[in-house]
């Protein structure tokens, strides 16, 4: 190489070294910010879910522990009223029936907000009860399969319960399916929750991009918070299959 060429080549090497350094810096910062972003995102979702569940728990407890007894007392007092005529007697009976249905409705709302069965008996019983409730309220046939008694920490149980609740809700509201299968299994270090319906299905990627798809994002967020993986297999006309792979 001539002197001029040598100088040119040296300049190229210096530029290559600078480009290499910039690329290295770019990679390191990208990795650092990615980690930071994941941590912040997870914390944010966790905080949102915690706030939501605490609020539900508080409202459920207020409804059950404060309004319930108060309504029972009102019913007792109404029943003790001494009536004069037949018309008054009928009015008292009617009011008592109304109060009964209000108490019943309050129990349902309270149970829906924070299911007692889930808290007392665990995930399997909680989902069984939930499936029964939805079966009665809709024409959807629900088959729940779980061979073992599963106890996890309460946050995970609540998250999994809410996931099943969301899937049930979505299936009834959007899928047009008449059969939903739910399977829950615990392996050594993970929980596998799978659901499949025979409805009209949807395009997962386009739906998950839509802002109004809150239900789907709810499933993603709860799975993410538990450090799990959500796999959705669906095509228009071929039903929806969800698999939630959650580490224990």
């Amino acid at each position: 190489m001539h002197t001029q060429e040598e100088e040119f080549y040296r300049a190229i090497l210096i530029v290559a070294a600078v480009v290499g350094t910039i690329l290295l810096y770019f990679i390191i910062t990208a990795i650092r910010y990615h980690r930071k972003s994941i941590r912040m995102h997870k914390d944010k979702i966790q905080a949102e879910i915690d706030t939501l569940e605490n609020e539900r728990r508080r409202i459920a407890s207020d409804l059950h522990d404060e309004l319930g007894p108060l309504l029972s007392a009102v019913k007792l007092q109404i029943n003790n009223i001494e009536t004069v005529g037949e018309q008054d007697q009928q009015l008292v009976v009617k009011s008592s029936q109304h109060i009964d249905s209000i108490i019943q409705k309050l129990r349902e709302i309270s149970n829906n907000l924070m299911p007692n069965t889930l808290l007392r008996k665990g995930l399997k019983s909680g989902i069984e009860e939930l499936a029964e409730t939805y079966k009665k309220a809709s024409r959807l046939e629900i088959k729940f399969n779980c061979d073992q008694e599963i106890r996890l920490d309460q946050n995970k149980e609540i998250n999994l319960y809410r996931i099943v609740q969301e899937v049930l809700h979505n299936t009834i509201k959007h899928s047009g399916a008449n059969l939903l299968l739910i399977s829950l299994r615990k392996d050594d270090n993970r929980i596998l929750l799978a659901t499949a319906d025979n409805g009209k299905g949807f395009d997962y990627f386009s739906k998950s991009k839509e802002l109004k798809g809150l239900g789907l994002r709810n499933l993603q967020s709860r799975t993410e918070v538990m450090g799990g993986e959500l796999i959705c297999n669906s095509q228009p006309g071929k039903g929806v299959t969800y698999i939630f792979d959650i580490p224990v």
Binding site: E5, I12, L13
Partner: peptide, 18 residues
């Protein structure tokens, strides 16, 4: 940038080595 300039084989090889 070296187009049209008569460059040595070593320089071309050097650039290829990058």
């Amino acid at each position: 940038s070296l187009f049209g300039i008569d460059t040595s084989r070593q320089l071309r090889r050097g650039l290829q080595e990058v």
